[in-house]
Amino acid sequence: MNLHALKIFYTIALTGSVTQAAARLNISQPAITAQIKKFEKELNVVLFEPKGRGVALTLIGQKLIEPVGRLFTLENRIESMIEDYRIHGSGKLHVAGTYLATSFLIPKWAARFKSNYAETEVTITTANSQEVLDKLMNYVVDIAICGGEPEFYPEEVEREELYKDEVWFVVAPDHKFANRHITFSQMVTEPFIMREEGSATRERLFALCRTNRVQSPRVALQFSGLNETIHAVASGYGASFISSLAASEFIRRGELARVYVDKLFAMNTISLCTRKNEKYEPCVKAFISIVHENLDGINSK
């Protein structure tokens, strides 16, 4: 397939205009038009149709845009890796983690890593579990650290379990369920403050509802961060379902309270993920070694 023509297609799709694509690619407008016509003829499909002063994707064009975008994201990542290695010698390390991982686990590992490999630039990104895995699969990051049950992970991911953590129901200290033992059915009648879709703990709660054949709780408030969720619950509205690693300090200080749901014991498994069958760069191997060397303190909490 003609990758140059594919890039032209992608640029036109992003800009919605042959003129703007020509300016971005530094190619004349007639040349771009001719190459797209030739490309459509080779593929025997129509990719664009006129729309106002610009163009719009046809149905097949719309289907192609996502995989083509992933292709060029990978191309940019490869170019960036080569450039990083050329400039920095030891390269850059890109790690993505969930809010729990980047708040409680990764900072210690990153500090140890930098003390040994000061010349390596380390970038840490925070996102929910699904977004973290997407970044890994799209070669945006080298390592992903996130939570979720085994079936949550794509087959292309190599997963190593690092830490098992209880997941607790929490409310404000003056809530009617604070420090009480109740049934799961009672618990899910409360309005819940939850993370966004793609959060492993959110998916875990809904899976428990399906398993126990109870109606999923109403998501009254939704936040894209763990701290925001905790503070909203502490403010006195609703309940949430969060990691004990994140909740325990707030409970110790009296800002949150547990709710003990009878016959329900939920665990969150935090895993280190890489791309399957991929040879690790030296900095990736070194970071993983540091993670292994510093697990005891976490698992003893």
Rank of each mutant, 00 (worst) to 15 (best):
G238N: 03
E40M: 06
I143H: 04
E197W: 14
R218W: 00
D262R: 08
K279D: 13
A234R: 08
G69T: 13
N227C: 00
G97K: 01
F9M: 02
R180Y: 05
P30V: 04
E160R: 06
T211F: 08
T269Y: 10
N227G: 04
C209T: 14
F152S: 15
D142L: 08
K263D: 11
R202W: 07
F287C: 02
A56K: 12
K135H: 10
P30Q: 01
Y260W: 07
K108V: 09
L264H: 02
S28A: 02
L162Y: 01
S129A: 15
A246V: 08
T11R: 10
N179C: 06
V132G: 04
T269D: 07
G16Y: 11
E293Y: 00
M137F: 00
N116D: 11
Y153R: 09
K92Y: 09
R218L: 11
I270S: 04
F48Q: 00
Y99K: 00
A220S: 14
V18H: 14
E228I: 00
E161G: 13
N179K: 06
R253A: 15
E119N: 10
S300Q: 11
I290D: 05
I78K: 12
T11S: 15
D165G: 02
P173V: 06
A110D: 01
A101V: 03
K276Y: 07
L245V: 12
P107T: 07
L295S: 11
L256M: 06
H4Y: 11
L6P: 01
L226K: 01
Q29C: 08
S224A: 12
L162G: 02
V214M: 02
F265T: 09
P282V: 06
L64F: 01
K63R: 13
R86P: 03
A23I: 10
R204N: 11
H292Y: 15
A266M: 04
P150M: 08
M194N: 10
M194L: 15
A257Q: 08
F39R: 13
N227A: 06
S248P: 01
L256I: 09
D174T: 11
L100A: 05
H4V: 09
A234N: 09
I230C: 01
T11M: 10
N116K: 14
S216T: 15
E293K: 05
F265P: 00
H88C: 11
L256Q: 01
P282M: 06
N116H: 10
R252E: 14
Q62Y: 01
A13H: 07
Y85D: 15
E255N: 03
M194E: 07
P282H: 06
H88N: 15
P30A: 05
G97T: 04
T98D: 01
I106G: 00
Q35I: 04
Y280P: 03
I242V: 14
S185L: 10
V55I: 13
I106L: 09
V140C: 00
S235A: 15
R24L: 14
E203W: 13
D142F: 02
F104I: 09
T123S: 10
W168V: 13
E156N: 11
S129N: 08
S224M: 13
I65R: 08
A13D: 03
E131F: 05
E158S: 14
K7H: 15
I288K: 11
E40I: 02
G91H: 09
T19S: 15
I251E: 03
S17I: 04
K263F: 11
